[in-house]
């Protein structure tokens, strides 16, 4: 863990509201420790702005452990920055060199209106889940957990899909602004498990319809989504979503 300090130039997007005109703002930052996380670098910038009496940059973040899905921005054009399978909060400044220029802007896609600076409105993702991303089982006394046997490899595949953190990087990276990777992760998790079968026919269709309503595009296999997904979710899930959607469309009993 050899730490050193670097100087960087940050070009960061400022926008005071959904309808306001936005623009890049430039800040030269000195002596940034390479052990810092990317968000800690923004903290340092914000502390400096605050002391100057200027407004700090608004950005979403919470757990800073790469699991809550709250943070995210485009860093030099890539969602969550240059590291594979890494959320913005887990990106560290050791990834950058002295003298680098770093361009930071919000996730941009029709489904995610900008709220302020880097903060976006991702409530569409909640609406997609509300449309069918669940198993309809009321709290009560279900059967013993071990009466539903699930082979280990199936449970593992379901877990691979369930690992989605709902950050929205997939939609932001997609040239079509599609949230298919997000929706397909939930559809896949439940399609793989016996618990999800009863509602399988409706689920895919309802979630896709909601996605359309919220202004997301369709998938045309660019694979940009899986390239930026911090949890390594693959587009195989999209193939499964398409199968589920087709199966549902041909079903006559729902």
């Amino acid at each position: 863990m050899a730490s050193k300090n670097i100087n960087i130039l940050v070009k960061i997007w400022r926008q005071n509201g959904p309808l306001a005109q936005g623009a890049f703002e430039e800040h030269a930052l000195k002596d940034i420790s390479t052990d810092m996380s990317f968000l800690e670098m923004i903290d340092v910038l914000n502390e400096w702005l605050t002391r100057k009496g200027l407004e700090p940059i608004a950005f979403d973040h919470d757990c800073r452990e790469g699991i809550c899905g709250m943070c995210g921005a485009m860093v030099n054009g890539t969602a969550h920055g240059p590291d594979k399978e890494t959320t913005l909060c887990q990106l560290h400044m050791r990834r950058f060199k002295d003298g680098d220029t770093i361009v930071i802007e919000p996730f941009r896609t029709q489904g995610f209106p900008i709220v302020k600076d880097l903060i976006i409105d991702r409530s569409a993702l909640d609406r997609i889940i509300a449309a069918g991303g669940f198993v309809s089982v009321n709290t009560g006394s279900p059967q013993d957990g071990n009466t539903i046997l699930i082979p280990q490899h199936v449970a593992e595949q379901a877990m691979d899909a369930a690992a989605c953190i709902g950050c929205g990087a997939c939609a932001a990276a997609c040239p079509n602004g599609s949230a298919m990777l997000f929706a397909s992760a939930k559809v896949s998790q439940l399609a793989l498990l016996p618990q999800g079968q009863q509602e399988a026919k409706k689920r895919a269709i309802n979630m896709v319809l909601q996605m359309d309503k919220d202004g997301f595009g369709n998938c045309s296999n660019h694979r940009e989504c899986e390239n930026v997904c911090p949890k390594g979710i693959t587009i195989r899930n999209i193939a499964r979503l398409n199968r589920e959607f087709m199966k549902g469309s041909f079903a006559i009993d729902h």
């Binding site: 669940f134 198993v135 089982v137 709290t139 009560g140 006394s141 279900p142 059967q143 013993d144 957990g145 071990n146 539903i148 046997l149 699930i150 082979p151 280990q152 449970a155 379901a158 877990m159 369930a162 998790q189 439940l190 498990l193 618990q195 999800g196």
Partner: peptide, 20 residues
């Protein structure tokens, strides 16, 4: 709790035979 979560489709770790 475990029964409820399994019924919801929480992908708990499993043994090869499929038990929790």
């Amino acid at each position: 709790i475990i029964d409820q979560c399994v019924a919801q489709g929480v992908p708990f770790a499993r043994e090869y035979g499929g038990t929790l």
